[in-house]
Design a binder for these strands. Structure first.
Lengths: 239, 239
DNA sequence: TCGATGCCTTTGTATGATAAATTTTGCTGG
DNA sequence: CCAGCAAAATTTATCATACAAAGGCATCGA
């Protein structure tokens, strides 16, 4: 769940090349310069560069072969659910299209997760969701709200007990991240979704899967509509 | 989507250490031997080892810090949707619990994907699904059926046009892989799910999202029941 | 024209050395 | 005896260089 360490040198190289690829500055099919040349141009040893290339290769962004060189792989080979890839996309390409897709993913994942959580949550897991909810209640600004909100949705995913579901938190994280950015300007009633969260919490507490699913579904539908509204109001080049 | 190349040396190291970690032979919290010692014990250079460690680190399996050493991260930090991690789990830990979770994921993803595909598929994408269906029809043995089945479900995911959905194909791949292994013994009517697939194809062709969703849902429910049945019949230690 | 063989470029692997970071230890002063 | 700071030791991080292997390209021959 943790992004690659940006402090280390090869971490910086990963981030640099990764963003260049994801942003489209380096297109699929392009071949990178030779390793020693690229290493020199980035002011790192070939060794550090190679470690970075291996990481990018693990994310499906590139592929290296002797003699042929290292080339960018097609977009559908990328590990689109990787935490770094998602964050790089969010950082460089907040197109309407991408936001829409993120919302779609969320709408698939979270209601199902809420239902599963209502079915199988342990006492401890419920307590964690409850704690997050209270922190949302107590939040005094958008920043506090943001971390509490993330905690809430993370706790719901945790309560499913399905580790693959939990790994999908990276997607939810991206969605909420975009939302917070876009709603930072209109800092008015940032707690408006509290009732929705309460319904979800309550349904999970009472072990009512279908109620939890519907409540979560309603919350997300509302959230997407809200996002759409703010996006239209906000400053944008293309109409 | 492609697993790490096992031909290269560091690829072998990744696989070796990865399976040892995922299988539980190396437990979370354990610290690996020092890099030079580990490199020597695995008969590779420290360089190749480090590249492997970086890849495992990118998958969230390990974390390295100076002086402290390299240690196995807790399971919920692992990138459970990574193609390699999934395949290593399938190879070493086909517990009932894990199969159940895979089925749950599939039941969440595929109906939603079918609905989205029915809504947005292009002509070309539909053609690809159709082609896969015909290959399933024409399959003469379980092996041919397996590749065609994978093609079909992959084509449906592709037709959603959502790249994150497409990346989830790794999960479906794992589920079907397990299914094929378990159903290899009873090679009787391997085409029994053909009508289900036809309904899905038809609904997607006619742009009927809810019909497609229900058809896919029915297919998966049936598939899970079937898997459960075979699993009980099969040779197992624990009842 | 086709095919095989040798060369050449690029990634893959190995080795040794130095830097940086962090924990531990030990020293000093109160 | 304890607190706090400084030095040391250990481990990863980075660098530099050399050689091996693989894959394409050209050349040469039939």
């Amino acid at each position: 769940m943790k992004a690659t360490d940006a402090r280390s040198l090869h971490g910086q190289v990963v981030r640099e090349l990764g963003t260049r690829i994801v942003s489209g500055e380096l297109k699929p099919g392009d071949v990178l310069p030779r390793e020693d040349a690229l290493a020199e141009s980035m002011q790192v040893s070939r060794n550090a560069l190679r470690e970075a290339l291996k990481v990018l290769s693990a994310k499906g962004l590139i592929e290296a072969r002797p003699k042929t060189g290292t080339r960018i792989r097609p977009r559908d080979a990328w590990n689109q659910l990787d935490a770094d890839v998602l964050s790089w996309r969010c950082a460089t390409m907040p197109t309407d299209d991408f936001i829409e897709k993120l919302g779609e993913m969320r709408e698939i994942i979270e209601p199902a997760a809420a239902a599963a959580a209502a079915r199988r949550r342990t006492q401890t897991q419920l307590a964690r969701i409850d704690t997050a909810y209270r922190q949302m209640e107590a939040a005094r600004d958008t920043s506090e709200w943001a971390v509490a909100d993330l905690s809430f949705h993370n706790a719901v995913l945790q309560a499913t007990g399905n580790e693959m579901m939990i790994s999908l938190f990276t997607v939810i994280e991206s969605v909420l991240g975009m939302f917070f950015v876009l709603s930072a300007q209109t800092a008015g009633d940032f707690k408006y979704s509290l009732p929705h969260h309460h319904k979800v919490l309550d349904a999970i507490r009472r072990n009512q899967p279908e109620v939890a699913r519907k409540a979560m579904q309603a919350m997300i539908t509302d959230s997407r509509a809200n996002l759409e509204k703010r996006r239209k109001k906000g400053v944008r080049k293309a109409s």
